[in-house]
Each structure stands twice: as structure tokens, then as C-alpha cells.
Write a protein that binds this DNA or RNA. Structure first.
Lengths: 337, 337
DNA sequence: CTTCGTGTTGCAATCCTTTTCATAACTGAC
DNA sequence: GTCAGTTATGAAAAGGATTGCAACACGAAG
């Protein structure tokens, strides 16, 4: 059996209270006593029982993280960021995967809320009001979405779109297609917002296609529409979609970037490894995970009435090899071939 | 505040014990009473406090899962399998990512073992004896690895290699390269074992290359060696490596499968989406995750002295488009061009 | 009529820690 | 020399659920 606080107390000739204090509020105990207690505790391999502690403090030391799809490289990067930051603060994290279904999202939310101190909800599909599913006692921090004044971390998607559009416009593209992600996705609508503005600013033309599922197959399905749209460049909702797009473009005999420029979003690891390497709007995934944990922890600590409740992280266009000058036979006039 | 067992007891006019029993051992209480208690409990939204329960039962209701890299599609598939099975049994799972470092593996193991009922170790790296890091009270189930008589779930890697080699031999390949994964990986050595046997059985020739890191870059690095080896076909440690391989082969102007047949392992989602689609030895990742949870849970239930402690899952060669007949100018004699 | 199961229920102990409150010793000031 | 004010420690009360043990009622068996 593991050593309990009583064992330590006996061995160190002090009361349980002193042991508890020596370990959690060292400044309250005499340095000598503290040293003795600490050394005994180490010798006995004592570690406070989390259940017992949780019972009285009401906290679990756990965080919950809900993601749509852990197999999606975007989210696995976020997960790593969250894990790292949580571990640094001595929190453990439960990860729940909704498999892109918003129903299970709510169920998970409810189940999770009982056993964690706070929840990170990562780019949720579920309608706003269903955030109420989680009890009022459990703070929620949102990532990649903004709902009311709940604490959240977002990335500047609109600015990312601006960078992408300006880049394409500078290459001479006049008509740009956008392969949209899920309709209910907050980041998708942010991207569309930025897109529309930049399109207007640069005097280019937009072909809005979709909505498509944010997976490889979504890109495959969208490719033919992109070709038919008469656009010479396409921006995809994310890199995985862009990969699907390129796969089908290649099957259709459209060379990238000669026949079609392609821009992704997120900058997942794969993107730099494709042929040609993907130009993409990089999102600081790791950092976003860390920042959201930081935010949640600060809410936890200050009991809500606190500090900055929102952070927006920058995006950065990374130009690789899938974007090039618009093809000579550019035809903004007749729409499509 | 959440409802406690006392609230339910009062409202239902019974003692706390009866409430507890009505919910956890229903057969011990009068059907009428039980119905009343259950209905009151639901009305009050009562859910037993996990910390309090854990304190007395000594169990947490949590499982730990340790994987080398959650961003690796192989492991994220396993994670999903584990999650599903665990949830079905009303367990939550902590996931820890070692980032392919075996040192952090031990630390994580130790930290995790305090707050879970059992651990699934899904990572082949750490030396066998370091499994001792986890306290004797916490059962460990191994996946993709066999150590002594610890409970474990493995896949029949050797047979997978046999299928691959026979497939290639039937296509006329006489010299086959193998791009090895990490030296300390259990599944790598199993694959090598199966490989050597099948190579002998089919009278083909083996070029053993490596060891390489099990990532895209590993495949890229291996490609030139493969070409130089004079082999007309190559089997990669896993699909990600195979992808890296193909990327570099293409850059070197070697067509797949005309100039080189490529076989991967694992069958990650990406594999069917590449051009050409990857022939691979499929591993039942989801099922493996589920099976390992099942094993661990049975150990947990029966206190160790129990049932089958080992399960081996079959592998299945999936022939897609990266394997073809050996090129006409096959040259087993002069080694390489 | 007593006795013995059997089926239900309640009492109370227990799990281990944190934390409030009280006690005690000691310091420094008046 | 007394009193207020620290500082250091201990005793004991939660905290919420589970569970062994006792008690009770009831019908059956002797």
C-alpha cells in the first residue's frame, strides 16, 4: 500500500496537519520541521491521494479537452500544445474526440464536466446555446471560436486570408476560388469574412464553393468545381482539403501551380512534404493550445472576475511551391473554359 | 451545488446506504424502493461524486494511455479505438504523448500510475525493465509489444511480412529492400523476423536498410539507399516512411510501380489517397485499441489471476497501386545499375 | 410456538486530505 | 510584569460515497 499522510506524520513525529502544510504551504511551518517532514515524505515515497484531496478541495486537477477529430493533424498539434501547458501546471488532461458529430459533443461535455476543473472546447460545431450543457461550476475556454464573452483564444483568420489573397493578386490572379469548410464552423465564417473584404480590396473576383467536409475527400469532391469555376487559384479551408484538391487536380491533368495555384490553411506537417510543397496560411497551433490552457487556468485561479478573457494569435502566410503566376490564358471575362 | 447522496436519501425517504445500493447494486433493494430512489435521483440530477467514490473504493475510473506520438496517424487511430472501448465501460482515459522520447515515458508512467486504475502502454521504445517504473498496484497492458508474461495485444507482423513478400515474389521481384524502423522497436524486430523467414521461403534476396526514424523524413533519407541497393521492390517499416520514400523516389525520377514497387505497413488513412495509392499491410488499429482495453479491464476485474493474457490480431495485405510486376531489366546478378 | 432463513433497510465506520480553530510558546512594547 | 501580536503546531471537523454489520419483518419449517 502507498504511504498516507499519517505514516509520514508518525515517522516525522508531527501531526498530519503539519505534514499537509509542510508540503502545500511551506511558509507556514518552521524550516527545521519542514525539512524533516519533506525528507521523511520523500523517503516513504509519499504522494497525496488525489481523490482525498479532491474531495475536500473540490478540485480534480484535471482539464478536459474536446476536439472534433484527433486524427486530424491540426488538432493533434493543438493537443500537444495543451498537454504541454497543462503538464507544466501540474494538470492532467482528458481528451474527448467527437468524431465531428455535434451531438456527441454535448454528451461528452456533460460527462466531462463532472470530473474536470475546466474544459477547453476546440472549434466546436455545436450551436452556441448548447454550451449551456456544461454545468455553471465548470469554466469553459473556447479555442477557434468566439461566443459571447466566454474566454477564448482565436487566430486572426481574416488577416490570414488577406495575406493569401494579396499574394495571389500579386501573382496576377484575377479570379480566386474558395473551398469552404463546414457551414457552422466559426473559423470558416471568419475566413469568409476576411476573404470577402480582401477580394474587394484587391479588386479580384471570388468563386465561393461548398460547403465541404474538412477532410481529404472534401477536397477531392471540390476539385472539379474549382476547375469549372474558371478560377486560376484556389484557397482551401484547410491543408487536408488542399491535399485532396491537389490529388484530384493531378488526376484531372491540371498542373500545380502552372494550371492552378493552391493555398491551404493551418500548415500541418504534411504540407511541406508534398510535391510540390504547399503554400499555406500557418496557424500557431501549439501556441494556441498553450494559450487556451493559460486562459483557462487564469479563470480558474481568479474565479472568473479577471484579466484578459480573449487572445487573438497572428497567422502567417508561408509561400512554398503551389502558388505561381497566373497562367497566360487568364480569362476573367468569359468565366470558365 | 450538485446534489449529494444525502439529498437524494432525504427526498426519497430512505437512508444513504439504500440510495447507494439502489444505484450500484440494484438487486439488493426492493423494486419499489429502487424505482422511487432512481426517479428521485434523476429528478435531482444526482451523480455520485467520483472523488468520494474513489476515496473509498480505491479506484479512479480512469485509464492511462501512453503513445509515442499522437500526431502519427497510426496512433491516433489506436487512440480512437481505446477511447471508444473505455467510454463504453464508463472509464475515462488520460492520454500521454512521449514525443518519441523514452525518458519522458518513464516519468509519465510514474506520474500517471497514481491516478489511473490501469495503463495501456502503446509504445515500443522504452527498455523492458523500465516497465517497473509503474507501481505494482497498477496493471499495465502492452500493445504492439510482448514483455515476459504481461498482458498484451499484438498484431501478426511476421505474417504480414509473409503476405507482402509472397505478393512481391509472385510479381517477379527477386531482390527486396526493407527500410527498417527504430532498432529498439518490438514490431520492427517482429517484421524483420517474418521477413527473413519469408525471404528464405520464397528464395528471394533481402537488402536490409536502416535503422531509420519512423517518419516521413526517414523514408526520404532511405530512398537513395533503396535505389542503390539494386532491389526492385521495397517494404517500408510503416506507411509514413513509405510516403517519404515515394516522395524521394519521384524526385529521383524513379516511377512507382514501374521502376520500383513499394509496400507500406499499417494502412493509415492517407495511404489510399496518394497517387498511386499505396499497397500496404493493414493493421487493425482500432480493434487493437479496443482489444487492449478489454484485456486491461479483465485484468482489473479478476485481479490478475485470469483468462487469456495475450491476443494476437491478424494483418492483411491490401494491394493497391504501388506494386507491379518487376521491371524487365531485372538484375539480381550485377547488384545495381 | 420457537427457530431459522431470507429479503430489506439503516447505522456507523472508513477512505485520506485539507482547513478552521484553538492552544501554546515566544517576542517585543508599554 | 503584563498584554498584544506573532509564529508554530495540534485536534478535530468536514467532504461524499461505500460497505460490513446489525436489525427488523415475514413466512416457513420443525
Amino acid at each position: 500500500m502507498a504511504a498516507t499522510i499519517r505514516d509520514v506524520a508518525q515517522a516525522a513525529q508531527v501531526s498530519q496537519s503539519t505534514v499537509s502544510r509542510a508540503l502545500s504551504t511551506p511558509e507556514l511551518v518552521n524550516p527545521e520541521t519542514r525539512a524533516r517532514v519533506v525528507s521523511v515524505a520523500r523517503r516513504l515515497g509519499y504522494e497525496p491521494n488525489r481523490a482525498a484531496r479532491g474531495l475536500i478541495t473540490g478540485r480534480t486537477g484535471n482539464l478536459g479537452l474536446i476536439v472534433p477529430d484527433i486524427a486530424n493533424p491540426f488538432f493533434s498539434a493543438v493537443v500537444k500544445g495543451v498537454q504541454g501547458a497543462a503538464r507544466a501546471a501540474d494538470y492532467s488532461v482528458f481528451i474527448a474526440d467527437t468524431d465531428e458529430e455535434s451531438e456527441s459533443e454535448i454528451g461528452l461535455l456533460r460527462a466531462l464536466s463532472k470530473q474536470v476543473d475546466g474544459i477547453i472546447l476546440c472549434s466546436p460545431r455545436a450551436p452556441d446555446d448548447e454550451l449551456e450543457a456544461v454545468g455553471p461550476g465548470t469554466p469553459v475556454a473556447l479555442m477557434n471560436r468566439r461566443v459571447g464573452d466566454r474566454p477564448s483564444v482565436t487566430v486572426d483568420n481574416a488577416d490570414g486570408m488577406r495575406q493569401a489573397v494579396e499574394h495571389l493578386a500579386a501573382l496576377g490572379h484575377r479570379r480566386i476560388a474558395y473551398v469552404a469548410g463546414p457551414r457552422t464552423s466559426w473559423s470558416n465564417s471568419e475566413r469568409e469574412r476576411g476573404l470577402h473584404r480582401s477580394i474587394a480590396d484587391t479588386g479580384t473576383d471570388l468563386a465561393h464553393l461548398g460547403y465541404f467536409p474538412p477532410q481529404f475527400d472534401g477536397g477531392v469532391a471540390a476539385a472539379d468545381l474549382v476547375i469549372a469555376s474558371g478560377a486560376t487559384a484556389v484557397i482551401a479551408y484547410n491543408d487536408v482539403v488542399a491535399l485532396g484538391l491537389m490529388s484530384r487536380l493531378s488526376a484531372r491533368g491540371v498542373a500545380v501551380p502552372e494550371g492552378m495555384s493552391v493555398v491551404g490553411c493551418d500548415d500541418i506537417g504534411m504540407s511541406s512534404m508534398t510535391h510540390p510543397a504547399l503554400t499555406t496560411v500557418a496557424v500557431p497551433k501549439h501556441e494556441a493550445g498553450r494559450a487556451t490552457v493559460g486562459l483557462l487556468l487564469s479563470v480558474l485561479a481568479e474565479g472568473g472576475a479577471a484579466s484578459a478573457l480573449h487572445r487573438e494569435l497572428p497567422t502567417q502566410l508561408i509561400v512554398r511551391a503551389t502558388t505561381g503566376v497566373a497562367r497566360a490564358s487568364d480569362r476573367p471575362a468569359d468565366g470558365h473554359s
